[in-house]
Amino acid sequence: MNVFRLAGDMTHLLSIIILLLKIRATKSCTGISLKTQELYVIVFLTRYLDLFTKYISFYNTTMKLVFLGTSISIVWYMRYHKVVKQTYNKDQDTFRHYFLAIPCFLLALLIHHEFTVIEVLWTFSIYLEAVAILPQLVLLQRSRNIDNLTGNYVFLLGAYRALYLVNWVYRYFTENHLVRWIPWLSGLVQTTLYADFFYYYIKSWKNNEKLQLPA
């Protein structure tokens, strides 16, 4: 594993820790899209089916279990915790899951490496992850007040896939030039979706102002 991949994983983990910290410490999930969080649960469930069929490393297995456990607990807090659920911006979080999930599933049926259940679901999870942030970005745009933890959460979540892009370039040149179009292009789309957010996040940070996205 190279340093870019590790930095990507750690950024991803840190983003989730920040989100859980926000929810647990402030007993609030304002500004967080339940739609996006539920999509991440689907992403992890469909991608990590190989937990049962193949062993890669202790690191890999542990991280997969952590991502599954934390994403499920975030959804649990937002749906069922009696204080947290009252802070959920339900009226603003209106993006429909199936607008994203169904096209991604159809695309995975058409474009994949191998027509097996595990491989098609893995491919689906890659496509879905690329667009799963959209409900969150829409909600941020509708929020007049984006708190620091939420802003940092989304920033780190976007930075993680950008670091994976560098990791893929590095792996291409250091590991027998293996071409993997599905994750590469999906990862590129995923990172591009954050471009606008990155711009305003960095601008607000440089000017020491509160983060706000133009409507």
Binding site: R5, R47, I56, N60, H113, W122, L178, P183
Partner: peptide, 10 residues
């Protein structure tokens, strides 16, 4: 690129 890539990433 030959065969199915092993998914060793997260």
């Amino acid at each position: 690129s030959s065969g199915v890539p092993k998914h060793d990433e997260l």
